[in-house]
Design a protein around this nucleic acid. Structure first.
Lengths: 206, 206
DNA sequence: GGTAAATCAATACGCTTGTACGGTCATGCC
DNA sequence: GGCATGACCGTACAAGCGTATTGATTTACC
């Protein structure tokens, strides 16, 4: 296997150190934006030398890509946890996952700010766009699946097209999240609007 | 009045020149992103000297702010035009305005890319955020008004809360626009989803 | 104990950046 | 005719940037 999986000896803490540096990078993006990131600032915040950062990342680009994958993984992990609790009915799980896109606490807020920064840059960076789209796709697939399950459990009308519905709910949640982030709406109202639409979907005849 | 309104003599073409430089700036944002903007690149694209750019804008920040107001004005103008055609029923006007947020052609696409870049930066620049929110607010107000009119014309159920509905439609359209921009969905599907939701809203009992 | 790799630290390089400054020429006004 | 102002141009500068390089120290393994 690769050196990354080593648990003892030289290189054992390699991945952990990379994550630690990535955390510093993400903190800077949250505070000052993606443009304001310099290797020296990252090093200072991570309390290591510039040389150390260079040792763990060949280039700034590689560091950015790693940080994006790192934070994506955190999001994926949260979705997995939501899915894991099998007691809940599919519609409730769907609601929970969508609600994650509305930043109700500081941590979620920071993550959404960071995700927004990466999204903006992905518009001019194909490589970033690829990595971002991967996470996007998998979340979308989960939504489609949950809607199907909800339909099978008679929690949502069978007449709904799962893919379109997933796209709509995704877009709605994302848009609401953005409005909250901008300060245009408070999280409570945004979540209420989301729930309202979920209810409307469930009680539609078509 | 200020010198900006002068139409003859010295300073007559002042505002026009500023707009011309702003166009170059916006083109660079569309192509390479907001971070990639340098005064020299702007000067080159506008086919003027660096000194000329400096002459018309005291600082880079001022130029960015001007460009944001400039492109916002263009959007506002389009909304005004949609509102202007009085023959159309309010729900159709509402639909047109929401559809503007889904980039179906190159021009709309470029504008949304630029708006996204500004939005991302506004997360770390309060001054930009203020300017952006102003346009946001006025668009939101227009949506609320149109929904009220649609209700009065019996095109939408009176039971709907106009403000919440406006927020929801806004968020949905914005989210769909983003999905199209990312390349996740094609404009046709996005517009179909938008229409579907407008229909669902109109035929809801509550 | 020796060798090789990992882990840094320090420094330097070339480049780009926003801004400042000085100068030139044209224009408008008294 | 003089004088202020507008409209530039060219250049210079200090700061910051990503990256390369070199070297020292530690660690793991034979």
């Amino acid at each position: 296997m690769s050196k990354g999986s080593r648990t003892r000896g030289l290189g054992a803490r390699h991945e952990e150190r990379r994550r630690q540096i990535a955390e510093a990078l993400l903190a800077i993006i949250d505070l000052h934006g993606l443009d304001a990131v310099s290797l020296r600032d990252v090093a200072a915040r991570a309390e290591v030398s510039l040389g150390a950062v260079q040792h763990y990342f060949r280039s700034k680009d590689e560091m950015l890509l790693f940080a994006l994958d790192y934070i994506s993984e955190r999001g994926t992990e949260r979705v997995r946890r939501s899915l894991g609790q099998g007691e809940q009915p599919p519609r409730a799980v769907l609601r929970d996952i969508l609600a994650e896109l509305v930043p109700a606490d500081d941590q979620r807020r920071a993550e959404l700010r960071i995700a927004t920064a990466f999204t903006a840059r992905s518009l001019v960076s194909p490589k970033l766009a690829d990595h971002l789209r991967a996470g996007y796709d998998s979340l979308y697939d989960v939504l489609v699946l949950l809607i199907r399950h909800a339909q099978e459990a008679d929690e949502m009308p069978a007449g709904l097209d799962p893919e379109r519905t997933a796209a709509a709910l995704f877009a709605l949640a994302e848009g609401l999240g953005m409005q909250v982030l901008i300060g245009h709406r408070n999280p409570r109202t945004a979540l209420a609007i989301l729930d309202e639409h979920l209810d409307r979907l469930s009680t539609t005849a078509s």
